[in-house]
Design a protein around this nucleic acid. Structure first.
Lengths: 207, 207
DNA sequence: TGCCACACTGACTGACCAGTCAATCGATCC
DNA sequence: GGATCGATTGACTGGTCAGTCAGTGTGGCA
């Protein structure tokens, strides 16, 4: 059944990403999506039960992939720094691959505390929990400091990544490949090693 | 003129904060604001030219105070860590003082890349720039590492703070005083010192 | 006492738009 | 050829809501 039928569904979803990214979920009309997809208005309702369900579908499709990426990083035998690097890399690559989709997910779902945020709160929390698990593991191995809770560290880490993406989303000039790659290492550097210069020897600052 | 006239204006603004926080800007009706304020529908338009202008007013009122706090931190003679701590503290205290207002600002303005985000993009960027200036200063003094750009560090710092607030905003259980205070130090700890345990001696990881 | 200015009221309107549905198209099978 | 059924169409409806405006209090001032 992966014929014209499923194709049109996909066409509508892809059009919705572009329209949501351009105009925002609340501001756009369903007819905008239909027009963008080159499809009759009614067909949207043949494949989706509501405007909201389109956004839900887009979010879940992508978020489930991310949860898998987080789980995979956690299970890998790498150092915790590299696990976090893998997650940051995955998110940044997601942006590279489809900036519009990431914009929609971040702006319309992840940060929308009222409407959709609440619907998908569980899924969103799963992501934080996965990151927190990595931090907790690193603490137990004595590799990460224990005076910052894993939950807090997860928020700080994810927040940094999302904020960097938000910066790109808002930015009028497109982001270069180089900058994307550079961001990956800078995130890990900042969160794992901190901004302070490790004053090796003289003025030692204790926690 | 600071009589009943200005009072009603304030009453409407305060009511709007509660309504926006509860229902979201796009989902609420102007009549909801009027009802919450205990005021006739038309009076809202006596003081404000549009629903949007109410949100603008709320945002600008608070954001300008924050920009001042950032500038003040930058100009103070404290260590860069303490400057960042002062900013994190200010934002967290803002949340303590009026969680609804912070929710509205973060959810409806700061992260709304389409509608209001664009209007206030300049003001929002001013905040990042202020934080970046502190980091740049610390780098020039040789106190912060220079392989992370000030702009990036500012994003990471602000993103961490905002994400922690977002966590509280989403959370159903209210946040304790203790947790608010603890967050201040954990943010500075994380961003300045990093999550890694400073392995003093043995397994040294180079950047 | 009468007049003015302005705070205040809330019914109304005009526009907009999500979702419906009856009709058409076209592929496939008998 | 024609019966069946899902895909596709787009005009239409019902409800919602931002913003308007004509009118009513009310406090101050001459």
């Amino acid at each position: 059944m992966t014929t014209a039928a499923t194709d049109k569904r996909r066409v509508i979803l892809d059009a919705a990403v572009r329209v949501f990214a351009r105009q925002g979920f609340h501001t756009c009309r369903v007819s905008d999506i239909a027009d963008e997809a080159g499809v009759a208005y009614g067909l949207v309702y043949h494949y989706f039960s509501s405007k909201e369900q389109i956004l839900d579908t887009l979010f879940l499709e992508r978020w489930d992939v991310m949860l898998a990426a987080i789980a995979e990083a956690d299970e890998s035998p790498r150092a915790p720094q590299d696990k976090l690097g893998a997650i940051a890399g995955f998110i940044i690559d997601s942006y590279r691959h489809d900036p519009d989709l990431m914009k929609v997910i971040i702006v319309e779902v992840t940060r929308a505390a009222n409407t959709f945020g609440l619907t998908h709160l569980g899924k969103i929390r799963d992501a934080y929990a996965g990151i927190a698990a990595i931090v907790a593991g690193a603490q137990q191995e004595g590799r990460f400091r224990t005076d910052v809770t894993p939950e807090f560290a997860a928020q700080a880490f994810y927040g940094s990544v999302e904020q960097v993406l938000t910066g790109w989303i808002f930015d009028s000039t497109p982001v270069g490949e180089e900058e994307l790659e550079r961001a990956k290492t800078m995130i890990v550097q900042t969160i794992c090693c901190g901004l302070e210069l490790q004053s090796t020897g003289p003025g030692k600052k204790s926690a």
